[in-house]
Amino acid sequence: MATDPALDKSAFGYTVADITRLFRRVFDRRAAHLDLTRAQWRALSRIQRAQGLTQAELAEDLEMEPMAVGRVVDRLVQAGFVERRADPADRRCWRLHLTARSDDVMGKMKRIAATLRDEATADVSDEDFERVMRLLVAVKNNLAELDREDRARQQARRKTQP
């Protein structure tokens, strides 16, 4: 019995990457009128989900170099969407927060994303969607645990190296 190559486990990572790439591409086109770069809207979205994170944490979350994230944040601060607040526990550290001015653009981004999600899942039953989401959350949790373990091993190796 021939199986669909798209359903082969070896295609899993590629399929997830393709979905992410296509979702971002369509979102980029639909959000172009907001005059934000992808890095900027991703930063805004991440800051909204984790108000008060540091630039270093944002860089790690976005998988960007800290200097590049610094430039993105500088532009968002200049545009009035983000403010840097001093960390009360560490004077060298700045915490990132959205301003009230970001509310309008964040609302527009959320509407674009919601419409795109609805269109992307239009032919998917609620039951299938829930099943896929359970699978993706389980895979995400497994990968997060593997990441923690790998980081711990890497740090232990660094400590034992001369």
Rank of each mutant, 00 (worst) to 15 (best):
A2N: 11
T3I: 09
D4Q: 06
A6S: 11
K9L: 14
S10R: 08
S10L: 08
A11T: 11
A11K: 06
A11P: 02
F12G: 05
F12T: 08
G13Y: 12
Y14H: 12
Y14D: 14
D18F: 13
I19M: 12
T20V: 09
T20C: 10
T20K: 14
R21H: 07
L22P: 04
L22I: 08
F23K: 06
R25S: 09
V26F: 10
F27P: 00
D28F: 01
R29W: 10
R30Y: 12
R30H: 10
R30P: 04
A32W: 02
L34P: 01
L34M: 04
D35Q: 11
T37Y: 00
T37A: 02
A39E: 05
Q40A: 01
W41Y: 04
W41G: 00
R42E: 14
A43Q: 00
L44T: 01
L44Q: 01
I47G: 05
I47T: 03
I47D: 02
Q48E: 12
R49N: 04
G52Y: 11
G52Q: 10
T54R: 06
Q55Y: 06
A56D: 10
A56C: 05
L58I: 00
L58T: 00
A59K: 01
D61E: 13
D61Y: 03
L62S: 02
E63P: 05
M64Q: 03
M64L: 03
M67F: 11
A68M: 08
V73P: 04
D74N: 13
D74M: 11
D74G: 10
R75G: 12
R75K: 09
R75L: 07
R75W: 03
L76K: 07
V77Q: 00
Q78P: 02
A79N: 07
A79M: 09
G80C: 04
G80K: 04
V82N: 05
V82L: 07
V82S: 04
V82Y: 10
V82H: 06
R84F: 03
R84C: 05
D90K: 02
R91G: 09
R92D: 07
C93G: 01
R95I: 06
L96P: 01
L96D: 03
H97C: 07
R101F: 03
R101S: 08
D103I: 05
D103W: 03
D103L: 06
V105K: 00
M106W: 00
K108E: 15
M109N: 06
R111E: 14
R111N: 08
A113H: 03
A113I: 00
A113F: 01
A114F: 15
A114Y: 15
A114P: 06
A114L: 14
T115L: 08
R117F: 14
E119A: 02
A120R: 07
A120M: 13
A122I: 07
A122F: 08
D123E: 14
D123N: 13
V124I: 15
S125M: 05
S125W: 02
D126T: 13
E127G: 14
E127C: 11
E127R: 15
D128N: 15
D128Y: 15
E130K: 14
R131K: 14
R131W: 11
V132R: 09
M133W: 15
L135H: 09
L135N: 08
L136E: 12
L136D: 11
V137D: 12
A138N: 11
V139R: 15
K140Y: 13
K140P: 08
L143N: 13
L146Y: 10
R148K: 13
R151L: 05
A152K: 03
R157N: 10
T160W: 09
P162R: 15
